[in-house]
Amino acid sequence: MSRKTVVSTAAIGLLGLSLAACAPKGLEAPTEPGVCYHVVLSEDGKSAPLVNVVARDQPQIEFCAARLEEMRLRFLSMGGNNRDMIGAYQGQFIFIDRAGVKFGRTLEGQRFFALARTGDGRLAIPGAIQREIDGRPVAVAP
């Protein structure tokens, strides 16, 4: 390889690294152990989201999701109309909507389906929901 090729390859690599460093990282979920947060996104999308503590000493992310679901139902019973909610727990975001609960590392990225809604609106582990097909119980997958 010629010296010119090595130098140009290095320059392109440095340019790529500097562009990646300048890109906005977006909101990162708080990482404080055991603390469950409610995340409120701004209406205009320009100002920083509000992050409020919902509960402390939560042993697992599923417990945080349950606290957020309680809060969502309480708001709905008081006349609220927001059926979706975003929370955070130890570096992960929690998304609650009509389908159930999903977890994700970023607000815009991929989401992992964690809890499904049963027919009566409760949350359950997807494999735990069973129904009968041809007289035999079958686990329902998401």
Rank of each mutant, 00 (worst) to 15 (best):
Q92G: 05
G80I: 01
N82E: 10
A114Q: 12
F113M: 14
N81M: 08
G80A: 07
D84H: 11
Y89K: 04
M78S: 00
E108M: 13
A116H: 02
T106C: 10
A114D: 02
A114H: 08
G80Y: 00
F93S: 06
G100W: 09
F93I: 12
Q110A: 13
G79W: 00
K102R: 14
F112D: 15
N82H: 07
G109D: 14
F103H: 14
G109Y: 04
F75C: 05
T106E: 10
R117C: 10
R111D: 05
M85G: 01
I96K: 00
F95Q: 10
Y89F: 15
F95M: 11
Y89W: 15
L107A: 08
D97E: 10
Q92D: 12
R98D: 13
I96T: 03
R111P: 00
L76A: 14
D84G: 10
F93W: 05
A99G: 09
A114K: 12
L76F: 04
F112V: 14
Q110N: 12
R111S: 06
G91H: 03
D84E: 15
T106A: 10
G79A: 06
Q90Y: 09
G79M: 01
G104R: 05
I96G: 02
R98F: 10
G79Y: 00
F113P: 03
Q90W: 01
L107H: 02
D84Y: 03
G80W: 00
F103G: 04
R117V: 10
K102L: 10
F93K: 05
F103A: 10
M85F: 00
G80E: 01
A99D: 13
G91T: 07
G87H: 09
R117S: 07
N81C: 06
F93R: 11
M85V: 04
R111M: 12
I86W: 09
T106D: 12
F113R: 12
G91V: 12
R98S: 14
S77Q: 15
M78R: 01
M78V: 00
I86H: 04
T106V: 07
D84Q: 13
N81T: 09
E108G: 05
F112N: 15
F103C: 07
D97T: 03
R111Y: 05
R98Y: 05
A116F: 00
G80T: 08
L115V: 04
Y89C: 01
M85H: 03
K102V: 01
V101A: 09
A114I: 05
R83F: 05
I94P: 03
V101F: 06
I86A: 06
R117Q: 01
L107N: 04
Q92K: 13
S77R: 15
I86N: 03
F103D: 02
R98E: 13
R111F: 08
A99W: 06
I94S: 08
L107Y: 03
I86L: 15
F95V: 11
K102A: 15
I86M: 12
G100R: 10
G80M: 02
A99Q: 11
F112H: 11
N82R: 11
L115Q: 13
M85R: 04
V101P: 06
R98P: 00
F112K: 14
E108H: 04
Y89P: 01
G87K: 03
Q110I: 11
G87T: 08
G91K: 05
F75L: 03
D97Y: 05
Q92T: 11
I94M: 11
Y89L: 04
D97I: 06
R83W: 02
N81I: 06
E108A: 13
Y89M: 08
